[in-house]
Amino acid sequence: MITCGVDVGAGSTKAVLLEDGKRLLATTWLPTKGQTSVAAKTAIETLTRDANLLPDEIASICSTGFGRYSVEERNLQVSDITSSARGAVFLHPAARHVLDIGTQSSRAIAINERGRVLKFKMNEKCAAGAGRFVERCSKYLQVPPEDMGARACLATNPRTISSVCAVLAETEIINYIAEEVPVQDILMGIFMSLAERGHALMKNVGIQPDVVLVGGLVQSAGMVEALRRTTGLEVHVDPRMHHAAAIGAAMLAHMRLEKTRGGTPSMPASGRGMA
C-alpha cells in the first residue's frame, strides 16, 4: 500500500511516497512560490511519474505544512508539528526531541519512541527565530542561502546579534557591515542567534536526547555548529530531515488507512479539522 505525504511550507513544498508506512520510495522538492495548491499538485505529479505509478495507485494522500488545507488531492491533513515528529523518528529512531526551524516559525517538540508529540513550544508572532530571518540576512550580506552555513563555519570571532526582534537584528547586522566585520563572523552570529532562540524553546519543553534538527536548515553546517555550541548537545542531522514532515504525513496516512481497515479515508465534513 503506497501513501503520499505532502508538506506545503511557506518556502518550499516537499513530497514523498512511502510503501506500507515503512519504505521510502521517492522524494521531491520544489519552491512553493506562493502558489500552495499548484506546488502540491506539481509535487504529487512529479512523484507519481518518477515512481512509475498510476495516480490511483496512491492509496491516500496526507497534507501538512502551513498550506495543508489548499491541497485538493488530500485525503486528510495533519499539523506539521505532528508530522515532523513522526518523520523524525522514522529517519532517526532514537529521536526524542525535535527542533524544527522552518521558514515561517520554529518549534521544539518532545516526542516518545513512536514519534507521538508529548509537548511542544512554538515561537510566537516573530520571524527572529525562523528561516525567513536567514533568508533576509542572505540578501543583506549578499551571500547565497546555500553558502551561508559553510562560510559561517570559517568564523574566528562570531559577533553577537542581541536583539530579539528580527527588524532590529537586521539593523545590528547592517551596523556590522558598516564596521567591515568579516562576513563569516556575522554569519555565525546570525546562526548563534537563531540557535539561542531554538534552545530557549527546547528548554521550555524539556530536552531529552537524541536531539534532531528538521526543516530547511538541516543542510546548513553553520546552523548545526551553532546549535551544538549553544546547547552543548549532539544535534543529529540527516539531509533527509528536510522531508521529515512529508514522511510523517505519509506515515500517518498509512496509519489512518489501517485504522479504517483498508478503506479509503474520507475528508472531514467541514473540510477542516480531523474527522
Partner: peptide, 18 residues
C-alpha cells in the same frame, strides 16, 4: 487563529494518532 489552530490540531492529533 492560525497559530491556535496549529497548536490545537497538534494536540488533538497527538491523542487520535496514539
Amino acid at each position: 487563529y492560525e497559530q491556535s489552530r496549529l497548536m490545537l490540531e497538534t494536540f488533538v492529533e497527538s491523542i487520535l494518532f496514539e
